[in-house]
Amino acid sequence: MPISRRNVLRYGLGGALILAAGGTGLALQATAPREARGPLQVLDARTYAILAAVADRIAPARDGFPPASELQVAEKIDALLASSDPALGAEMKQVLHLLENALAGFVFDGRVRPFTQLPASEQDEVLRAWQHSRLHVRRTAYAALHGLCAAAYYASPAIYARVGYPGPPDFGNVAVRP
């Protein structure tokens, strides 16, 4: 008997097990590619493409806001992971695999296409389902993706004018950074 979504919830699978399932069958599925601007340090081409797709839904091009990809949000997160404990990068890749994986998506939600191959509106539904999921591991994963993407996007001075923030005062004591 196939494991239904309901059963998985009832069995209350542990977070680690669910994350581990994220890679199952993923090799057979195609991720919509994206080109990183600059060399990646922690993410690979595939996890970069998934993260960039997520970032563009958290901060899409809309109403004067540039898309996250224009502010290189996924590249900035890659750089942050490179200066963090290696375990953090490994966990982030697991989360991205789980999000992308249509097989896992099918088991839990009945979706048959990888996240990156979905139209924007359906990607939003997937993110919303994770945000409100009864599975704590999915809420946690949403928290990680939302936190990192929102932080990298809104820490960009390029966004200050759009949100009405004039930026910090200049006390004249800080060397200009490259």
Binding site: R57, A59, D124
Partner: peptide
């Protein structure tokens, strides 16, 4: 996230 988040931030 998305439009609702941006509307808040604006």
């Amino acid at each position: 996230f998305g439009a609702g988040h941006q509307a808040f931030m604006a």
